[in-house]
């Protein structure tokens, strides 16, 4: 039955409760830092813009009492992806690529431009993984969902259901273990009755039919859960209007400084990046 217990070790999020001043900041500030560091990591021209956010995030992690090694561990699942990107660049050439050839292997060759593309992809991805890891390790699910609502507040004026969206996001996170448990219990129930998944013979329709005894009960049970939730909320006169929160986020001391610092850092990285990238590229001979 070991194979059927899909969800024993699933944990969503990786919150590290160190109680640092960074943890105590409001979600809005954390989102601001998330965006301010991610933007240059995604959209920068060169290495400086891709790696400075990484450096900033690691410094912030130290301030937040989160070990940098903990954040870097998040890179493990995507290491194979780097290899795939590198192999793809090696095999497929770019049309009109006249940069220096670094080495050849049979009909394939690695050029300086391809190496640059791979290194940039790695730098950007490493930065983003660490930045996002910093966010999730300092922000609980509830804070993240409330933050979404605050962040979408301007859109709410235009008619976007920001509150409903945030509520649904919070509820969805709560639903995951419930849905997973339902799925597991029904797979077990069917297996106990001798059900055989995946090895069914016959055409597409026959195979699909074999899975129906699994999906229909799962969906019915899940829909009933949603119905029960909706009824419970309606019974408590939930309307979504003028709703206050159980947790009220208070601005910490110096939080406006932290917000301004995020904006300043973002602009500074972009400025530095555009100033440095061209000479750096020329130095490396990438576009030669």
């Amino acid at each position: 039955m070991r194979d059927l217990e899909f969800f024993r070790n699933v944990s969503i999020g990786q919150y590290v409760d160190s109680g640092s001043p960074v943890h105590r900041m409001t979600p809005a500030t954390k989102y601001l830092w998330l965006v301010a560091l991610s933007a240059p990591a995604v959209a920068s021209l060169g290495y400086a813009g891709a790696l400075l956010p990484l450096l900033s995030a690691l410094c912030a992690a130290v301030a937040a009492g989160v070990r940098p090694s903990f954040l870097l561990r998040g890179l493990k699942p995507i290491l194979p992806l780097f290899l795939v990107v590198a192999v793809m660049q090696f095999i497929f050439g770019w049309p009109g690529d006249r940069s220096a050839v670094l080495f050849r292997l049979g009909p394939f060759s690695a050029t300086a431009r391809e190496a640059h593309i791979v290194l940039m992809a790695v730098a950007r991805t490493v930065s983003l993984v660490v930045i996002v890891g910093l966010f999730t390790s300092t922000t609980t699910e509830g804070e993240a969902a409330h933050g979404i609502e605050d962040f979408l507040a301007p859109l709410a004026r235009l008619g976007f259901p920001a509150h409903a969206f945030a509520l649904a996001a919070t509820t969805a996170l709560r639903f995951i273990p419930i849905v997973a448990g339902e799925l597991e219990s029904i797979v077990k129930a069917q297996a106990a009755r001798g059900a055989d998944f995946g090895s069914g013979k016959g055409g597409v329709v026959a195979k699909a039919r074999a899975y129906l005894p699994l999906f229909v009960p799962v969906m019915i049970r899940a829909l009933e859960r949603a119905e029960a939730l909706a009824e419970a909320m309606e019974a408590r006169c939930y309307t979504g209007r003028g709703r206050t929160r159980f947790v009220v986020y208070e601005l910490q001391r110096g939080e406006w400084v932290a917000r301004l610092a995020a904006v300043f850092l973002c602009v500074a990285i972009f400025v530095l990046d555009s100033a440095v990238s061209a000479p750096l590229a020329a130095l490396l001979g990438v576009f030669a």
């Binding site: 649904a168 996170l173 829909l223």
Partner: peptide, 19 residues
């Protein structure tokens, strides 16, 4: 604000996709 049942169903399917 959409009706509560619609929010509950939307969050349920988000949870199904995530699970």
């Amino acid at each position: 604000q959409p009706p509560v049942a619609r929010i509950a169903l939307a969050s349920l399917f988000a949870a199904l996709i995530m699970a």
